[in-house]
Design a protein around this nucleic acid. Sequence first.
DNA 1: AGGAGCCAATTGCATATTCT
DNA 2: AGAATATGCAATTGGCTCCT
Length: 236
Amino acid sequence: MTSSNQLPISNLLSENSSGHSHRPPPVYSITVRQHPLSARACGFSERDRRVIDPPPILVLEVRDPGSSEEEIVARLRSSFYVVYCSLWNPWSDEEDNIMPSSSRLPQRRLIGTLVGSHFYGRDDSNKEQCFFYFSDLSVRTAGTYCLKFDLVVLDAWRVMTRSSLAVSATTKSNVFAVHNAKDFKGMRPSTDLTRCLRAQGCLIPVKKGSAKAGASHSPEAGSDEEDNEEGSAPYM
DNA sequence: AGGAGCCAATTGCATATTCT
DNA sequence: AGAATATGCAATTGGCTCCT
């Protein structure tokens, strides 16, 4: 299991513990490689979950002039990263996770696995990258939202000393629409990137998509103006 | 009329069985 | 013994119905 590219915990400990090195800290950045486009509102039922389509996929990059290429790759292969997802209102630019309600207790609007799953593999252009995918995200109510992603680097030194972990990078997805059951046009077929990751062993679900959805917006055609306010491609 | 939840059909995956 | 095929189960998805 332990590959030669794996970074020992002792290395992380020494490289991250502040005051133990004069090297500038590495710079982390995350970019949304596959943006969410639409979803069907899943309501308040715990049983009936409707995932966001397509599943958001992020790419992690590390810039560290003091490290060799091999060290950076080893760092990307390690699983000492957590990407946390939250729901945002794109118009007010405020978090939109909590639904205030007079009749019910306040509930989270975004449900599912809010922490991204780490996967190191090749993208559809055969480039090795560190991915985080969110294949189990659902939104309870219809509306227009975007997703905010926060990267936290699990610093062994800080974990051991029980210090708080800082957010190392942040990014947001494009705006996407959540429709009611009657308005939802169906799931799209999985993108090439999704299929590519799946083929390498990534546990991301692959969907065939419905004819209705496929006719109006195939992933290849990229005609998403109806659902995607910014009119950008599903993934870049 | 719109939203929330239920239901049936479809799809994917795991396991069992059969064949070479 | 290993590969191929069949079967069953669980998850997913779209559409329908009921309630507010």
